[in-house]
Computed example of a mutant assay.
Amino acid sequence: MHSIIGLLSVVVMSTVTLGGITFGYDDLGSGEQTLVLVHGHPFDRSMWRPQTEHFAERGFRVIAADLRGYGETTVVPGKTLLSTFAKDIATLLDHRGADRFVLGGLSMGGQIVMECHRQFPERITGLVLADTTAEAETGDGRRNRAEMAARLLREGMRPYAEEVLWKMVAEDEAAAEHVLRMMLAAPPEGAAAALLGRAERPDYLDMLGRVAVPALVVVGTEDEYTPISDARLMHDRLPDSTLVVVEGAAHMPNLERTEEFNGALHTFLDSIAARTER
């Protein structure tokens, strides 16, 4: 069985209000190494449960939060730039006393991770970039995101969610059910704001060449949104990176192929710990 969704124990959930924004987050486990995970669009932190529980039970501290506009975190209509998401993450991690950490994200979450590195690289000990792209949005892409934002506000999440579900996942029914629940629960105003902000993202390719910490790049073979070529481009630009291609997974390999994803991530975290001990 590829996925462990449905076999999860109780997850501790908390909220805190900082700077007028209420954040929903999980802060699990303990240990010298902290792993921070950033979800994609239009999901919430529950997309990382197969990872938060797995690694918390194995001696890591794992933090995953709902981004602004998603899950239990405050919805702010309008436009949410990646830089705003990154500042929110820094604010929450300051509150939780997490000074140094491995930072990982999937899809939009991966782009937010790159923005975090642009803002506070000194706090990051490793990067995990899953099913994401470092390039700036194209002109067509900006128009498409603006149109989709307007559509979400007009129609709600269900038509979009049902349309894209089998692009998000390839064939895993349990993963598909989880992804559909997250998409249907996403507030349209928050999702639209993220789309509009993401359309204005900068190009991170040049920055990748200056990353001084190890990186793990992961992609599913069936991913139509961020294909293997995007992952290879990031892998080639990063000075110290490992590329893992997950067979049979689409855009959500952490849910579709949990064992493979967790295994690659565990190997990566162990390699960072070994470097620290030298």
Rank of each mutant, 00 (worst) to 15 (best):
T125N: 14
R145P: 11
D172K: 02
A212N: 11
V213M: 04
R210K: 04
L165H: 10
V113Y: 05
A150K: 11
A149M: 00
R143A: 12
G126D: 12
Y160I: 03
A212Q: 12
V169H: 08
A136Y: 07
M108W: 04
Q119R: 11
P187S: 06
L129A: 04
D203G: 06
V219D: 07
A193N: 07
E222C: 01
V169W: 07
L180V: 11
L195T: 00
E173I: 10
P121D: 08
L152V: 02
Y225F: 14
Y160A: 03
Y225E: 15
R154S: 06
T132H: 00
E122I: 08
T133Q: 05
A170H: 15
G110P: 02
T132P: 01
A186W: 12
Y225K: 12
L184A: 08
G126E: 09
R210G: 03
M207S: 02
Y160P: 09
N144L: 13
E137N: 08
G197F: 04
Q119C: 07
R145D: 11
A130Y: 14
A186Q: 10
R154C: 03
P159K: 03
L152K: 02
P121E: 04
M114F: 10
I124R: 05
M148A: 08
A176S: 06
E122L: 09
A186L: 07
F120N: 13
E189I: 01
P121V: 01
G139E: 15
Y225Q: 14
A194N: 03
E162A: 04
W166L: 09
D223T: 13
E171P: 06
E189D: 08
A146M: 01
M207P: 01
R201L: 02
R118V: 10
A199P: 10
L180G: 12
P159R: 09
R158G: 01
Y225G: 14
C116R: 08
R198C: 08
E135G: 12
E189K: 06
D206G: 11
P214V: 04
M182W: 14
R151N: 15
M182D: 13
T125I: 02
R143C: 06
M207A: 01
A192E: 05
L165A: 04
P159T: 10
G209R: 13
F120T: 15
A150S: 12
P188I: 01
G109Q: 12
M157R: 09
M168I: 05
R198M: 10
F120I: 13
G110D: 03
A136V: 02
D206Q: 14
A185L: 08
E177P: 12
Y225R: 14
D172M: 05
I112V: 13
G156V: 02
G156H: 06
T226M: 02
Q119W: 05
A185P: 13
A174Q: 15
E189G: 02
V179N: 12
A130W: 12
L205F: 12
V128Y: 15
G156I: 03
E147Q: 11
A192W: 06
E115I: 00
T125Y: 07
R198P: 05
D131M: 08
P188H: 01
D131H: 12
I112L: 07
A212T: 15
V211K: 05
Q111F: 06
A149D: 01
A212R: 11
